[in-house]
Design a protein around this nucleic acid. Structure first.
Lengths: 148, 148
DNA sequence: TTATAAAAAGACCTGTTTATCCTTTTATAA
DNA sequence: TTATAAAAGGATAAACAGGTCTTTTTATAA
């Protein structure tokens, strides 16, 4: 469904939010380690997220990544759009470039329902809502941490 | 969602079914043209489908592709599994390798519902059911044909 | 004010998917 | 029985996603 880059981005942002909640600013290596992604690749993704101002960054000693506005929420939809565009929410499930309610492919009606459900998730879930679930022990961020 | 190869495969199979219903056996060029896919690439995909015996083929003059058993149906699930495996039906939406009802990622419950819905579509829709919709004028196979 | 720690930037490498082209095999119509 | 039309097979290329490495910039603690 999502590209690896997008998945890494979402996991990284959730981790950053978790650390920010403890008044800490994780760096590239810490983030990469926690989300179980290659460090150099994680650095590139964090660069992208910073360039698009989803997060802020500080260079130099004690630097790292952080959310600039602790009150705002960030929807998965926005993260996905920035990382890979929104075609996952619009593409035809049959591969047709022209496919719509009025000119449907044979999968259209059923597939569009599923796709819209996915869009709903992406629009309503946020980095903060995911982080909260982890903080409440209802979910895990990575393979390492078992919440037993 | 699906790879291009899988989409081409499904569209090709639907077209072959449509032609078979008229007692014809389309060849590579005809299929490629109708499903709006590159001919050489379509040939490779038809080769794969033939090797896995989803369809039969005849070489030589008057040859082409066809379903060997006109009574059987072929689910999209089977086509997808052969073309790209079944990870689309099993992957975690958050990218975790270990993600389950008992050890969920923060997206798990909502995402699994969507994914299962998609699995339902793939298991219940068949090449034949899609072809039938087209024959009834309820849907289109390609960009060219407008069903107005 | 300098050594150090960190992110930013850019070049480069790797693997997979998508796609093309050429040769070989095979069936059949003439 | 031969020319021809078609699929099968194999090698190669192009585009993209995923990933690495090195250098540059910048902030700060010592």
């Amino acid at each position: 469904m999502l590209t690896k880059s997008t998945e890494y981005a979402i996991r990284a942002l959730v981790y950053i939010q978790l650390r920010n909640n403890l008044n800490q600013r994780p760096g590239v290596f810490e983030v990469a380690n926690e989300i179980e992604a290659p460090a150099a690749f994680t650095a590139k993704i964090l660069q992208t997220l910073t360039k698009h101002e989803l997060i802020g960054s500080m260079k130099g000693r004690g630097g790292g990544f952080f959310f600039t506005d602790q009150k705002k929420t960030l929807s998965l939809y926005k993260v996905i759009s920035i990382m890979e565009g929104n075609s996952v929410f619009t593409r035809c499930g049959f591969g047709l470039s022209q496919c719509s309610d009025s000119n449907p492919c044979p999968l259209h009606h059923r597939y569009a329902a599923i796709r819209d459900g996915y869009l709903q998730i992406a629009q309503t879930e946020t980095i903060q809502s995911l982080a909260a679930k982890i903080e409440r022990g209802e979910a895990v961020l990575n393979t390492l941490s078992k919440n037993t």
